[in-house]
Design a protein around this nucleic acid. Structure first.
Length: 906
RNA sequence: GGGCUCAUAGCUCAGUUGGUUAGAGCGUUGCGUUGACAUCGCAAAGGUCAGAGGUCCGAAUCCUCUUGGGCCCACCA
């Protein structure tokens, strides 16, 4: 073991052990009736994705859960896979062929899709490789893709099923249109962001010239999107608005277009906004659309799908919408029809893939009726069958579900699941939904059928993830990837065993997109919830609280961190600062803590291995503990370990990963290394010490394994090597059982006794630093304890105290034997006096004691007030009152001793 | 407009159902190295828990309001 380097080198361990785990099939999970299943389905990253900190956090949490439950003896399955990410992937591939000077239209649909598959072959598994770097213990043999043939079948099944239930319909609506991607988007895909804009006040002249009242011969409307005026087919005012009452029903001349439009009245119009008169563009605004329907207005679409003005836009044809805006304003100004311009912040939708400003656009799309699907999904959450962590997201979920809108599922792109609807070219009757192309038209028998051109929203496949990944609906396909060795009944067993899955780990922005829809799909198609718990973690931000993004240039690349500090360091640091549900503020320095901790574990292990006699490690701890009369430190560290383990179990089951990480950290570093190992160092060959230090290390490694899999495995393997105790049954720490709590070893009295001794040692060290003695060894201390018990305690641990406080001699005296004028300190840990004879700065000591006295007096005063309070005595629980009384007595006692000391120092 | 969330040490954050003298990491200061670890050890300094009010015997914790950040939702042209 002397050949262990003095620093932990993650690079030498990580790939080595990851390959080892994979080779030994340690990630695989299968139906095992004797075990409890534990299953997580990964939020499938996009095939275009590259690992960012959000992924790192998300997947670290999942891996911790999986590794923890696997060690606890559950059949733990982490189902991996990737998402075809329709628009995102299409965009990437379009960019890639653009380098060859090609557009997708040049290739044609079929060839283009071929290119996408090709791209996926080449780059689509980048993120999987990166997840492996992180240590993710997914069952890779099951890796799924949302465009797998089997998966497509599930998508089509679901579409047909909804179709048959009349939950899918086609309609003309003003939807979110991305002029750059040239497709419709769902509301969720077009998040609103506020941008700086203007409110333009336009004059629309009256046809009749002067109005009856003799007021201005025009009406002023306010708009943020002047270019849409070309499609105006009315102006609306509130019927109660006195200003316009007489104008209702009159005709206006729409400027630039010279179209006659009516002034209509509707209660929807807000009198307080703008001028109280609103231009109505039914084809380019959802509200106006509603008005258009209600008042039977004309619908004039003035734009091409690419955001340029079309033939309905008169002279502005072919201009880009924003260019048109400027020109129109110029033209209106020239005609003196622009009243004024006011700065105005407007909130408008942006494409979530390319950030282009959404154009509300009238078009014919396919929708899913959501209300019937939402109903059971609301119920299961309300009944607590599905729980959110932190709880507050429940409300967010329910609020959205209760106000759910129909889901626009058709996309005008090529990459994705093509809508399984078929039309007869000959008779042109209604569409037919079918898994396969129908042989012939059911009406006219023609075989001249064509499929719908559109594809489905990517999320229309993602929402099936928790069961479609298990080969639901269990029908054979021709695809190689589908594991045909599994009979249909086995696949069903697989799903029955692992579904509902245990927990879903994801970020808040995905709740509507995915979580809510998975719950709906689970209820609709499986008649059961998809998962029991939903753990929502925070968003990873930079140190200033900004979201990490490439465009801001504030990204910390997890792969850089792995490269520089190691995967365990990344995992530990990330987890230790992630309080449940809070956003994570990251700076690169945070990862030093994780790196240092891995190194600390490494070095403590190195020290132990260097001194370990293999003969001592086969002991059964429980028997050993009962049989041996262990000394204080050994009993203490064992008790502490199990106390800590209990805490960690509790934290894991409550999804408080940061607390688990920090509890383990401070135990190992500050208790095990700083106190325990230092205490036994001088007598490390002692058999009792050997057993205890080995057992603690070995069990600690298992406990830290879910968080830091690599360093724990590396050391675990080296222990086996050193001790030649390699057990053929157990090949890796990751399949070792999670340490079992030994209740009988936990002893709070032992823990507090150790605290007294350690407190005393700290006092001596303090004293030493205050008297600035260089030659430390020569120091001689005398200790006086009040009670026989404490005297015994100190006597029993004199060697320990001498050793850790580096004393030449420690003298234990009765109180009345105390020499005069030698007092110098008192242990705050207990009623123990501490004296030493020798030179010291009595003035400084006096100062220190005075400070302590002041502090004590203040506290005692408040205690007295509390205990004099009749209400406190009457209303507070008995044990609290008793505790406070005892506390006060203790403090007073200490105060008396301090005062005495202070006097004697004079 | 509705909802959520945050404000605790110089910095970044913990702090369970209210109950000893409010914690950690980093940073700062002093001391320390002839083999586990300087990616280290021993110690110290540093906080009227954003402000005001309330509930309670008792509030960092619960309630209300104020101030200042962040986020989400909604059909404010």
């Amino acid at each position: 073991m002397n050949d262990l380097p003095t620093c932990y080198n993650p690079k030498e361990s990580e790939d080595k052990w990851y390959t080892f785990w994979e080779k030994n099939n340690l990630f695989s999970a299968k139906v095992n009736p004797s075990k409890k299943p534990f299953c997580i389905v990964i939020p499938p990253p996009n095939i275009t994705g590259i690992l960012h900190m959000g992924h790192a956090l998300n997947n670290t949490i999942q891996d911790i859960l999986i590794r923890y439950h696997r060690m606890k003896g559950e059949e733990a399955l982490w189902m991996p896979g990737t998402d075809h990410a329709g628009i995102a992937t299409q965009n990437v591939v379009e960019k890639s062929i653009a380098k060859e000077g090609l557009k997708r239209q040049d290739l044609g649909r079929e060839k283009f899709i071929e290119r996408v598959w090709q791209w996926r072959e080449n780059y689509g598994s980048t993120i999987i490789r990166q997840l492996k770097k992180l240590g993710a213990s997914c069952d890779w043999s099951r890796t799924r893709f949302t465009m797998d043939e089997q998966y497509s079948l599930a998508v089509k099944r679901v579409f047909v099923s909804l179709w048959n239930k009349n939950l899918i319909y086609q309609d003309d609506k003003v939807i979110n249109w991305c002029p750059r991607c040239q497709t419709a988007l769902s509301d969720e895909e077009a998040p609103h962001r506020e941008i700086q804009g203007n409110l333009y006040y336009l004059r629309y002249p009256l046809k009749e010239g002067q109005p009856p009242s003799g007021a201005a011969p025009y009406i002023i409307v306010a708009t943020t999107r002047p270019e849409t005026m070309l499609g105006d087919t009315a102006v609306a005012v509130n019927p109660k608005d006195r200003r316009y009452k007489k104008l209702i029903g009159k005709t206006l001349i729409l400027p630039l277009m010279n179209r006659e439009i009516k002034i209509i009245s509707d209660g929807m119009v807000d009198m307080k906004f703008g001028t109280g008169a609103v231009k109505v563009t039914p084809s380019h605004d959802p509200n106006d659309y509603a008005l258009g329907k209600k008042h039977n207005l004309q619908f004039i679409n003035v734009m091409y799908p690419n955001g340029r003005m079309n033939e309905n836009a008169g002279d502005y044809k072919e201009m880009d919408r924003f260019e048109a805006r400027e020109v129109i304003l110029e033209d209106l100004k020239e005609k003196d029809l622009l009243e004024k311009v006011e700065p105005h912040n407007i909130s408008c939708g942006h494409c979530y893939r390319c950030h282009t400003i959404i154009e509300p656009y009238l078009s014919r799309q396919w929708f899913v009726k959501m209300k019937p699907l939402a109903k059971p999904a609301i119920k299961v959450v309300k009944k607590g069958k599905i729980k959110f962590y932190p709880k507050r997201w429940t409300k967010v979920y329910l609020n959205w579900m209760e106000n759910i809108q129909d889901w626009c599922i058709s996309r005008q792109i090529w990459w994705g699941h093509r809508i399984p609807l078929w039309y007869c070219r000959d008779c042109n009757k209604e569409a037919v939904a079918s898994l396969e192309k129908p042989q012939k038209c059911s009406v006219c028998n023609s075989s001249n059928l064509k499929q719908d051109e559109d594809v489905l929203d990517t999320w229309f496949s993602s929402w099936l993830w928790p069961f479609a990944t298990f080969y639901w609906p269990f029908e054979h396909t021709t695809e190689e990837k589908d594991d045909k060795r599994l009979a249909i009944s086995d696949k069903q067993k697989d799903l029955n065993y692992f579904y509902p899955t245990s927990v879903l780990v994801t970020a808040p922005e995905i709740i509507f997109f995915w979580v809510a829809r998975m719950i709906m799909a689970g209820e609709e198609f499986m008649k059961d919830i998809p998962f029991r718990d939903v753990y929502i973690h925070g968003t990873v931000r930079d140190i200033e609280g900004k979201k990490m993004s490439k465009s801001l240039g504030n990204v910390i690349d997890p792969l850089d961190i792995i490269n520089e500090y190691g995967a365990d360091a990344l995992r530990f640091s990330l987890i230790s600062i992630t309080a449940q549900g809070q956003d994570v503020y990251l700076s690169k320095e945070r990862f030093e803590q994780g790196r240092n901790f891995a190194n600390k574990i490494w070095n403590a292990s190195r020290f132990i291995l260097m001194n370990l006699e293999p003969a001592n490690i086969n002991t059964d701890l429980c028997i050993f503990f009962k049989k041996e009369n262990l000394g204080l430190v050994n009993r203490w560290i064992l008790s502490r370990f199990y106390s800590v383990l209990k805490e960690v179990n509790k934290n894991f089951s409550a999804y408080k990963f940061n607390e688990a990480a920090n509890t383990l950290y401070s135990f190992f570093w500050h208790e095990f290394c700083d106190w325990y190992l230092e205490a036994i160092k001088h007598d490390i060959r002692n058999a009792q010490n050997q057993v205890v230090m080995y057992k603690i290390l070995e069990k600690f490694l298992r406990a830290i394994h879910p968080i830091m899999p690599f360093v724990s495995e590396e050391i675990w393997q080296r222990i086996n090597e050193t001790t030649r105790q390699r057990d053929n049954e157990t090949t890796s720490i990751m399949v070792c059982p999670w340490p079992h709590i030994q209740e009988q070893i936990i002893d709070k009295r032992t823990e507090s006794q150790a605290q007294i001794i350690f407190g005393l040692i700290t006092e001596i060290r303090n004293l030493r630093s205050s008297i600035e003695l260089k030659d430390t060894r020569k120091l001689k201390f005398s200790v006086y304890a009040h009670t026989k018990i404490k005297q015994g305690l100190i006597r029993d641990n004199a060697a320990l105290i001498k050793n850790l406080a580096k004393l030449e001699e420690l003298e234990l005296l009765e109180l009345n034997q105390r020499p005069a004028n030698t007092i110098s300190a008192v242990s705050q840990a207990a009623d123990i006096y501490l004296h030493f004879s020798g030179l010291f700065d009595s003035a400084a000591e006096q100062q220190k004691i005075k400070g302590k006295i002041n502090n004590l007096e203040k506290i005692i005063k408040s205690k007295i007030a509390q205990l004099n309070n009749a209400d406190f005595l009457k209303r507070a629980p008995r044990e609290i009152v008793d505790k406070e009384k005892e506390n006060k007595a203790k403090l007073e006692d200490e105060l008396r001793r301090l005062e005495k000391m202070s006097n004697e120092l004079r």
